[in-house]
């Protein structure tokens, strides 16, 4: 009962923005490591209706500004998954994940640690 309430509210909000045609800001979590990941993730958001997409490797947050009348959050989410990246909502397929560069294999803690060490050395 509670869930359907949340969804009703959420969808009402979604529908209302769809109708109004105004842009909307939201933040979703996307897993990734480095600058190369950043380009891929932001590139995946390069679709009609998305005004800006900024991902931070530190916070893993993707800040989106998009026009909900032209594109849905779901579409953006799918596009990111298809580019090989997991979001807080859903994982990328095995195939898509395998296609990303070896240094970007964010699921592998060894790869993550290797990047952290590099950053640590530069500082």
């Amino acid at each position: 009962m509670k869930f359907s309430f949340i969804f009703t509210v959420g969808l009402t909000f979604l529908l209302s923005t769809q109708v109004s045609g105004q842009t909307q800001d939201t933040t979703i979590l996307v897993n990734g490591i480095c600058g190369m990941c950043e380009r891929t993730i932001e590139g995946a958001c390069d679709m009609d209706g998305v005004e800006s997409a900024e991902w931070s490797s530190e916070t893993k947050e993707l800040k989106l500004t998009y026009d909900a009348s032209e594109v849905s959050l779901e579409d953006i989410n799918t596009s990111i998954n298809e580019a090989g990246y997991d979001t807080e909502y859903s994982t990328a397929s095995e195939e898509a994940y395998n296609s990303i560069h070896n240094c970007c294999k964010y699921r592998d803690p060894e790869v993550v640690r290797a990047h952290e060490e590099k950053v640590g050395n530069r500082q």
């Binding site: 897993n31 997991d86 807080e88 909502y89 859903s90 994982t91 397929s93 095995e94 699921r107």
Partner: peptide
């Protein structure tokens, strides 16, 4: 170990 932030999906 695998870093997973998603609520849903397939991780083998």
């Amino acid at each position: 170990n695998k870093s997973v932030i998603s609520r849903k999906g397939t991780i083998n």
